[in-house]
Design a protein around this nucleic acid. Structure first.
Lengths: 233, 233
DNA sequence: CGCGGCTTTGATGTTCATCAAGTAAAGTGG
DNA sequence: CCACTTTACTTGATGAACATCAAAGCCGCG
């Protein structure tokens, strides 16, 4: 199910290096490269489950994932959908008992980089610029998540679906036509409504010629109207 | 309106010292003490407004505050209600333009400690244990906030009000009888419902003899039933 | 082929927001 | 200190938004 590689270090354009670890010295970075493990996950695979013990910082290198909370009776809430160098607030680091607080799963084929927590801890202790940068990233992504919740809570169903579609367009895919990385049910779990109403609302948008739908494929035709629905909905 | 003191350093039992700054050396700590400014705010006063520029880390030393988002037309959402050494995720640090992301106001008479960001930055750069501790605190409090949102979103009105009352009992006051630090309107802004329905639900609880209400004073009589309403609501 | 999960649409009911109207409390100015 | 205004609180009535229930088609998979 899971491909594991500890191959030649191809991290020169790794987002970690370029973004978070920009302040690492060459030897510090080589050190990480030697210790890291990369794993590939297929679309749909679980990367880790909530409550799982871990001694690694889990970093998304490629792909799209969801972070989510699972409840009893098979229900879930999706906290956020992210691409690489996106979500630092939910990285599995520094929980007192080293337990993951949420679950993580691949929405598209993804590559995850595992770095031993001991290494990260050592870096924080020894490299102040790294710490500073990391703290900024964590803050920034916490605020993004909080803003998601605030935004969604203030909108009606049409507004929420519009927000979600625009999120994919503007933040994830950067184009107006894309394949949904999630099921209708997962959209519902992300924006806090029922599956039926997600479908109904998407159908409305289709009938109003704001979007085209072909299975998982979405094309946004009238972005301006969608913006207005998002804003005023 | 605002009392400012730069008086004798009484930080020996300061929460910052004991919790976040536990790893500071004596001279590092003295340095901070010399540079910090303390201000008192009366109940109801705004501590800062969203978008305001700041060069200080704002740290709640005493009292109870709300962090909130303001919208146009006088509407708000309260993100969280906190006591000292509680909310690190929303501390005004390290935003690229040094702007506060949310607003902060005193719900009871409070004391806030201002430490120049430059000092904190310097500490992060030079003191790894401090950085590590700070990152852990930030992570922990982001997760608390995210869990708030997830919890509230999964509950009906009765469940939310029960959750709020129990939050005050268990987290803020640690007793079953207390004065509400907020108006009914603010409760509504925190748990995402209308003021009228907050009042209605509180009245219901009163009629069902789960709580006693006397203006702002709340007494929880049947904690177990409240727990069940919170859990299953 | 048949089963289970995902999708879709319609009908129904419940929850909750909105509107309205009145009382109590708290601040404001003379 | 008292009239005055404003803000907070409260209750009831109504309607809209949304969840739930039901049924059927679709698709992938063993």
């Amino acid at each position: 199910m899971m491909n594991e590689s500890k191959a030649i270090c191809d991290c020169n354009d790794c987002v970690i290096r370029n973004l978070v670890f920009a302040h690492l010295k060459e030897d510090e970075f080589k050190n990480i490269c030697g210790l890291k493990i990369e794993k590939s996950f297929n679309k749909g695979e679980t990367i880790y489950q909530k409550g799982q013990h871990t001694e690694y910082l889990t970093y998304l290198k490629k792909g799209i994932v969801k972070y989510y909370q699972q409840y009893q009776d098979n229900k879930s809430s999706i906290i956020t959908i992210s691409i690489p160098h996106d979500t630092f607030a939910l990285m599995t680091i520094f929980h007192p008992e080293s337990k993951t607080q949420y679950s993580m799963a691949a929405l598209e084929d993804s590559v995850v980089c595992y770095i031993p927590l001991s290494v990260i801890r050592e870096l924080i202790l020894s490299n102040g610029n790294f710490s500073l940068d990391l703290i900024q990233k964590i803050n920034q992504s916490s605020q993004q998540i909080i803003n998601h919740f605030l935004t969604l809570n203030s909108k009606n169903l049409r507004g929420r679906v519009a927000y979600f579609l625009l999120y994919l367009t503007n933040h994830i895919y950067h184009k107006d036509i894309y394949e949904l990385p999630v099921s209708r049910k997962e959209i519902a779990e992300l924006i806090g409504m029922t599956t039926e109403n997600v479908i109904r609302t998407l159908s409305e948008f289709r009938k109003e010629r704001i979007i085209k739908i072909n299975g998982k494929e979405i094309e946004i035709i009238e972005k301006e109207r969608l913006n207005k629905i998002c804003l005023y909905g």
